[in-house]
Design a protein around this nucleic acid. Structure first.
Length: 153
DNA sequence: GCCAACGTTGGC
DNA sequence: GCCAACGTTGGC
């Protein structure tokens, strides 16, 4: 079992959008960064737990917990010319981009802001708080996971 | 909206 | 394969 953090801009897709969706599941499409793609392809497994992070918004924060309901499959949005995630250099005979499926678990009563995460001495080695960390799919250690779950209660 | 940090592209 | 130029991310 591994733990992850995945970023989403709430204006695009928020934890509320996921909770209110029909089956509370979403295809996590549009990852167009190789490091993030490699995590999705090689390490993110079914039943892994994922912190849902809101980025590029008023209060950047971990806002909830989701579960990987399906491991890596091909992200077909790369071949959809009408998709915002269309990648004209992507070849359907040799798919490059990967998606997973996420399932809603909970929305935190107490979201944990980036400010709070940065200030916490137990979280100084989190990928998220590292300078210039832009990675949109990133690993979370067991210790970090448990501490953040504690903070959310 | 600014801009620092980072990733990608492409000329050489 | 280097690296300057460019594009993107994302906090502030």
């Amino acid at each position: 079992m591994n733990y992850w953090l995945m970023k989403s801009e709430p204006d695009e897709f928020s934890i509320d959008d996921l909770q209110l969706s029909k089956d509370q599941k979403t295809a996590w499409q549009g990852i167009r960064n190789y490091q993030a793609r490699n995590f999705l392809r090689d390490q993110v497994k079914q039943n892994d737990l994922v912190f849902f992070y809101h980025s590029s918004c008023k209060v950047p924060a971990i806002v909830g917990l989701v579960e990987v309901s399906q491991a890596a499959t091909v992200d077909m949005s790369a071949f959809d010319i009408n998709s915002t995630y269309f990648d004209k250099k992507s070849d359907i005979a040799n798919p490059k981009w990967i998606q997973v499926e996420l399932h809603f678990m909970e929305k935190f009563n107490r979201p944990i802001s980036l400010k709070q995460l940065k200030a916490d001495p137990r979280l100084t080695s989190m990928v998220l708080v590292a300078k210039g960390a832009r990675l949109s799919v990133q690993p979370v250690s067991t210790e970090e996971f448990e501490h953040i779950m504690f903070l959310s209660r």
